[in-house]
C-alpha cells in the first residue's frame, strides 16, 4: 500500500520534472543565443584575425550555427537526451568525462557534510529548545543568526587562516598532498576535514533554528505533557517523544536546502581547490565554455529536483499519515 503510494508519487514527480527541465534548457539556450560571445571567434582565439571569412563560414556551417535557432535548440536537446554532452571548449575533452571523474569527489564531500549538518543541527537545535531562554539557548540562537550572516567563502578563509596557516593542523586545500604520487584514503580524509566542516557549519544555522522551533512546538503538545505527568525521565520525553515528532518536518528540509547546498559546494570547492564538479562551473564560466557550463548547470538543477524527491519519499516512509494525500 505504502510502496504503491510512493511509486505513484515518484512517477508524478518525474512527470513534472520533464517540462521543468525543458524550460531550464530553453532558457539556457536562449541566453547563450543572445549572448555577445561568438563561439567561433572564441574557438579560433588569436587566430581569429588571421582566418579568412570563408573558413569561419565553414566552421559555422559545420557546427550548424547557420540553421534556424529552433532547429539548433532541438539538435542540442536531442544530443543531451542521448547523453552526448559535447566537448568542453576550454579543456578540449568530452564534458561527460570531466564530470565523470569529478562527480565522485563532490558527492563524497557534500554527502558527508549533509549527514554532519543534519545530525549536528538536530542535536544543537534540540539542546536550545530543551533549555529555552537559558544562556545556552541564547548563545545557540545568536550564533546561528550570526553564522547565517557570514558569507561561506569568508568563513572558509578564516578557518584556513586559523587551522591551516596558524595551527598547521590541516592542509589549506587540494585533494592530496602536492608531493603524493597516488591517492590514498588517509591523505584524502586529511584534506577532506576542513572543506567538509566549513560546508556543514555554514549550512547548519537554518537547520538549528528550525529544529529548535520544531522541538519547542512539540514540547507544548498534550502527549509530551502527558509523558511528563506519567513521570517519565526527561531524557525519554525529549528523545522518544519530542524528538521523534519533531523529526518529521525536519526531514523535508533536505529538499528545501538543496539549492543552498549546491551554492555552498561551489564556493567551498573553489576556496579549498577541491577537484569536484561544483567548482568546475566557475572554471567553465571564466572560460565561457558553454557545453561544460550548461551540463554543470543542468546537473545542479537535477540535484535540486532529486533532493526534493528524496526528502518527500523519506517523509512518507517516516509518517504513514501522509500516504493518503501523497
Amino acid at each position: 500500500m505504502r510502496a504503491r503510494a510512493i511509486g505513484r508519487m515518484v512517477a508524478w514527480r518525474l512527470l513534472f520534472a520533464v517540462p521543468l527541465l525543458l524550460i531550464v534548457t530553453a532558457v539556457m539556450f536562449a541566453l547563450a543565443k543572445v549572448s555577445p560571445f561568438d563561439p567561433v571567434r572564441q574557438y579560433l582565439g588569436d587566430r581569429a584575425s588571421l582566418t579568412s571569412s570563408e573558413v569561419v563560414e565553414q566552421i559555422r556551417r559545420n557546427w550548424g550555427l547557420d540553421r534556424p535557432v529552433l532547429e539548433q535548440y532541438l539538435t542540442w536537446l536531442g544530443n543531451l537526451l542521448r547523453g552526448e554532452l559535447g566537448d568542453s571548449r576550454s579543456l578540449h575533452r568530452p564534458v561527460a568525462e570531466i564530470i565523470g571523474e569529478r562527480l565522485g569527489w563532490t558527492l563524497l564531500m557534500v554527502g558527508l557534510a549533509l549527514v554532519l549538518m543534519l545530525v549536528a543541527g538536530l542535536v544543537v537545535g534540540t539542546l536550545a529548545a530543551w533549555r529555552e531562554n537559558s544562556w545556552l539557548d541564547r548563545a545557540i540562537s545568536g550564533g546561528a543568526l550570526a553564522n547565517e550572516a557570514a558569507p561561506v567563502f569568508w568563513f572558509a578563509l578564516i578557518v584556513i587562516s586559523v587551522f591551516a596557516v596558524r595551527l598547521g593542523w590541516f592542509p589549506a586545500g587540494g585533494l592530496t598532498d602536492p608531493a603524493a604520487t597516488s591517492i590514498t584514503p588517509g591523505d584524502v580524509a586529511h584534506h577532506l576535514v576542513l572543506p567538509c566542516l566549513v560546508l556543514a557549519v555554514s549550512q547548519s544555522s537554518w537547520l538549528v533554528l528550525f529544529a529548535r522551533e520544531s522541538v519547542l512546538g512539540v514540547l507544548r503538545e498534550d502527549f509530551v505533557v502527558g509523558a511528563r505527568a506519567r513521570g517519565l525521565r526527561e531524557r525519554t520525553v525529549l528523545v522518544r517523544h519530542a524528538l521523534r515528532s519533531a523529526l518529521l518536518p525536519y526531514i523535508t528540509l533536505i529538499g528545501v536546502r538543496m539549492p543552498e547546498l549546491v551554492t555552498g559546494a561551489i564556493l567551498v570547492e573553489t576556496v579549498f581547490s577541491w577537484p569536484g564538479v561544483a567548482s568546475v562551473s566557475v572554471e567553465a564560466a571564466l572560460a565561457v565554455d558553454f557545453p561544460l557550463l550548461a551540463a554543470v548547470t543542468l546537473l545542479g538543477t537535477l540535484a535540486v529536483l532529486l533532493g526534493n524527491l528524496v526528502a518527500d519519499v523519506c517523509h512518507v516512509l517516516a509518517d504513514p499519515r501522509t500516504v493518503a494525500d501523497a
Binding site: V24, M28, L31, S35, I266, S281, V282, A285, V296, G300
Partner: peptide, 20 residues
C-alpha cells in the same frame, strides 16, 4: 517553480559568464 529549482549562484554564474 523552474527558477526555484535552479541554485541561485549557479544561475548567476551562468548569466554573468555569457554576458561580459
Amino acid at each position: 517553480d523552474g527558477v526555484q529549482a535552479l541554485p541561485h549562484l549557479l544561475a548567476g554564474i551562468f548569466v554573468v559568464a555569457l554576458f561580459a
